[in-house]
Simulated assay, not measured.
Amino acid sequence: MMKAREEKLRARVRSISDFYHQRGRMPSFSEIGEMAGLRSKNAVFKFVNKLEHLKVLERDAKGRLIPGAIIAAPVKVLGTVEAGFPSPAEEELVDTLSLDDLLIQNRDATFLLKVSGDSMSGAGILPGDMVLVDKGRAPKSGDIVIAEVDGEWTMKYLRKRGESVALIPANPNYKPIKPKKELKIAGVVTAVVRKYG
């Protein structure tokens, strides 16, 4: 009886995980109810609380469902690779690691943006890349920031010298930007994600 219940729970968690990985978002309460075969809102609410208790999912500051460690599937870490001269390597499972845990420090304050334009190519950020932005981090000189300058959005290095503030591109074809009226910094870039193929 206990084993059958565990299998049922595992299957339901797998359904939620598949949904998350296929659609890039967590299912709603009603979608979870459909997947789990639960008809009443109360049953779904109790089930979601159980999943929260098991750390399958969590809630953000606004109460929205976000994936827990089980859904944000970890990837195997097989060791290191030499980027200089080739060296013999053996595949060995060192650990597992969730990319969320590696790349995101402040889940509630982090968002993704797709890059267009090549003004940051010298920093290794190319058109089509995705950047992770932490809006909770205090920007400091030298950080790559997402900023609204005089009503227009851009991504550049932040440079502060005394009272003077400028946004510096990482491509010599572009000029530094000095705000004429207003500069609002939306967040600090913490990681770049590039997919090959």
Rank of each mutant, 00 (worst) to 15 (best):
V131A: 09
S87Q: 13
E92P: 00
L113G: 00
A4K: 07
L78G: 09
A123L: 04
R159M: 12
F29V: 11
G187Q: 10
T154H: 04
S116H: 12
S119M: 00
V131D: 12
E52D: 09
L57T: 01
L167G: 03
G37I: 04
I144C: 09
I70D: 15
V77S: 07
M26T: 03
K55A: 05
H53I: 00
P127A: 09
L99R: 08
L93W: 12
E152Q: 13
D118P: 00
R10Q: 14
L167W: 08
L126I: 04
A191H: 10
N173T: 07
D18C: 06
Y196T: 09
K135R: 15
R39P: 00
V188W: 10
K62E: 15
L183H: 08
D60R: 00
E58C: 01
M155A: 11
G187A: 03
V48A: 02
N106C: 07
E58I: 02
N173E: 14
L54F: 02
E90M: 08
L38N: 06
D108C: 01
V149S: 07
F111H: 11
V56G: 01
D95M: 09
G142F: 09
A36C: 12
G33R: 08
D95K: 09
R137L: 06
Y157P: 00
G79K: 06
D18N: 08
L183T: 11
N173A: 10
K135I: 07
A186D: 15
S141V: 10
I146G: 01
K181N: 14
K175C: 06
S15A: 15
F111M: 04
T110Q: 09
G84T: 10
S28T: 15
L93Q: 14
I104D: 13
L102R: 14
Q22M: 13
L126W: 13
P86V: 05
P27F: 13
R161Q: 14
D18G: 04
A61S: 15
I71Q: 02
I125F: 01
G124L: 00
M130A: 08
P179N: 10
G122I: 03
S98I: 03
R10F: 12
G197D: 14
A170G: 03
A147P: 02
H21S: 07
I168V: 15
G128T: 06
V75S: 03
S40Y: 03
Y196V: 08
L102Q: 10
